[in-house]
Write a protein that binds this DNA or RNA. Structure first.
Lengths: 386, 386
DNA sequence: TCGGCTTCGGTAAACCTTTTCCCAAATATT
DNA sequence: AATATTTGGGAAAAGGTTTACCGAAGCCGA
């Protein structure tokens, strides 16, 4: 500091020495902005400005620089850029379980939205384990993610302090602490679930069971509450015996179905907190010799890709994970880039998709048959989507 | 220069200015190794040594430093560490499509193995698009991944030069250029596929179709070749009409099944290049009113989790993606950490898993029935694994 | 032809950490 | 008690980039 800046202009020799030193190092396969500058016969500042599309660089020179960059296949060192600019251009995404097909679809959407806006993503999978969650958060902080979307549908509050304390913008699903820098994606579970319940009620179902997600998670409660509200709206009583806790896995679905089958009276329809659970229930029904939908109607939740291919294709409630992902990125960007007034709430729609696992309950069917209306045996809405 | 502790010994006034500037910045929520050093009353070097468990730091001092680190919730800046140490501790993983359930399982395994050895992962999903592949590779280089596993089961050669030229260790599946720094994971497709073919042949199948993967991919050819060899070993002729190209998606499976169904003569069994294809075929069979396995036997490949839950559960050939992932990390580590003699070849086993989509072909079944052996109608090996 | 203005390009500091080198202090040895 | 040896810790450079600041060159009008 404080040296007369241009003193050296008149004394080239002293400056030459370090330059040579640089060259010798560079020859050993080390490529950086200096290499480019040297080959293009410009200063590193010019190279940097060219790369960052600074308009003060003259076109001819820019072209020359780009040519050298191409020729060398030069790519700037992201770490160095992030270090000096203070921007990592990294968004974090924390999910429950990467092996649940819902999440890869979400990840894909998140990545596409992020890349579109010049960000990259850092994925963390908690597997419902607080230890792993802690690790994920640590990594997000260490790598200086500029924002983190917590899509685990539930998070231990104390853990997120690590992030909140560092003023990392966060986005949650459903619920989260009300602080500045924290956005919420509010899923309107009620709309889709009510459609599902009404669909079942219209078919004549009165004995409707519900398999929840893990009740530690807030989203599981939200979905259950939406179900209970919808059921009551239809004037049906909710029998607590038919509310069974699952864990959002296929195995959990099987276990839940077993519990239901063990009861004295069977429900005629089951709604599930997610599609994987529904697939488990469907499988158990198959094993138990129940025909779907004749003996048991099943509705899932999420509308993951594979539900189109189950046998029979699953009626489910769509929650667009692309919307969810896009909104999450939007919310994060709004915080990071300080768009004037960042909304805190981003609503997400849900929507019933009728496929072929829902039909008349057995009793009704017989009744209809008796009335000579056998053509009706085709469930309504068959393959309305597929 | 100008670090707090000894600044005053030399030239207090001139050096004092930056110190104040630093502090003022630090107060505004900026935390780094200097903050820790200051609070612990040591130099930054000591803090760094403590963090890196350098044994020359005396225990008492280390304890004091760790306490401050804890109290501040300090986490070192990964970018800066990577920049100076030249080690990003990042491993890249490039997959075909994250929404194909095989890959999340692979990713999970890869991440677990990486984290176990102190690495983190960078995921790229190509969606079979060379443009995206290019982007993935660029990101891997930019972020300075220390090694990259290319699990797309096929890569455009010129693209990988970007990585090879930079001496980034690579690991491929099946096939890859024979250069130093490139390891191969050799999957023994033949073993599992032969088991599958023999299983079908033993049941009496002679008319066996095969739905390949996208033939641009080398792994598709490998699997097809393994099938053809196995078929010939069983003394069955391969009818080229029954080799149909799929694309590793469920939709591709449906399309392939449609092509097969349109033929004059139907095969009695179909082997598929992956499970998603098999699920598509299974679905098409269901739509066409064919019973599985009575009218059509189906065998998949990969043994993804969901195959346990298809209706009926899918007979498939297991390729342990955890093994694959673990071996990939091992191979990369061997290169990165210069273990004495890094093996180039890592063999991966495949294994038939018999579930319930394979049974006697229709003709045989009737024949057996005629022979009064109706008890045999249960296919052999039923749920031998589930 | 010269002075002032514009425009373009170079220099060095800053970002945060690791690591080498070196010095000082503490302990051991004669 | 004085020197040799060990140990612990501080200073500073390096790593690759961005950017503020400043100098130089070119251009125009007078």
């Amino acid at each position: 500091m404080g040296y007369p800046v241009n003193a050296f202009f008149t004394a080239p020799m002293t400056e030459h020495t370090p330059k040579i030193k640089r060259n010798s190092k560079r020859n050993s396969a080390r490529m950086n902005i200096h290499t480019v500058a040297q080959l293009a016969n410009v200063s590193i500042a010019t190279v940097s400005r060219t790369i960052n599309h600074n308009p003060t660089v003259n076109l001819k020179m820019a072209k020359r620089v780009w040519e050298v960059i191409r020729e060398l296949n030069y790519l700037p060192n992201t770490q160095a850029r992030a270090l000096v600019s203070g921007r990592s251009r990294l968004l974090g995404l924390i999910v429950s379980e990467i092996t649940n097909p819902f999440f890869p679809e979400l990840i894909q959407g998140f990545e596409d939205a992020a890349v579109e806006h010049g960000y990259e993503i850092l994925i963390g999978s908690t597997n419902y384990d607080p230890e792993r969650m802690k690790g994920c958060i640590r990594r997000m902080v260490e790598r200086k993610a500029e924002g983190v979307a917590v899509m685990t549908f539930g998070i231990e509050e104390p853990l997120l302090d690590q992030l909140a304390d560092r003023h990392v913008p966060l986005v949650f699903v459903d619920v989260g602490p009300d602080r500045p820098g924290i956005s919420l994606l509010r899923v309107d579970y009620h709309h889709g679930i009510r459609q599902g319940v009404q669909h079942l009620a219209a078919l004549g179902h009165r004995d409707i069971a519900f398999v929840t997600g893990p009740l530690r998670l807030h989203s599981a409660h939200s979905r259950l509450a939406a179900f209970q509200r919808a059921i009551q709206e239809c004037g049906i009583a909710v029998d607590p015996k038919w509310i069974v806790e699952g864990d959002h896995t296929m195995e959990g679905g099987i276990a839940a179905a077993e519990k239901l089958l063990a009861g004295a009276k069977l429900p005629t329809a089951v709604m599930c907190s997610n599609d994987m659970t529904a697939i488990g229930v469907l499988h158990k029904a198959y094993r138990a010799g129940l025909r779907v939908p004749d003996d048991l109607s099943i509705i899932g939740f999420d509308n993951i890709h594979i539900t189109q291919m189950t046998i029979p294709p699953l009626t489910t409630i769509q929650m667009s994970c692309f919307d969810l992902a896009r909104e999450a990125v939007m919310a994060l960007r709004a915080q990071v880039e300080q768009t004037p007034a960042p909304k805190r709430d981003y609503p997400i729609e849900t929507q019933l998709v009728v496929r072929e696992t829902t039909g008349f309950p057995r009793g009704t069917m017989l009744q209809l048959r008796k009335e000579g209306d056998s053509a009706k045996s085709d469930p309504p809405g068959k393959s309305s989507t597929v």
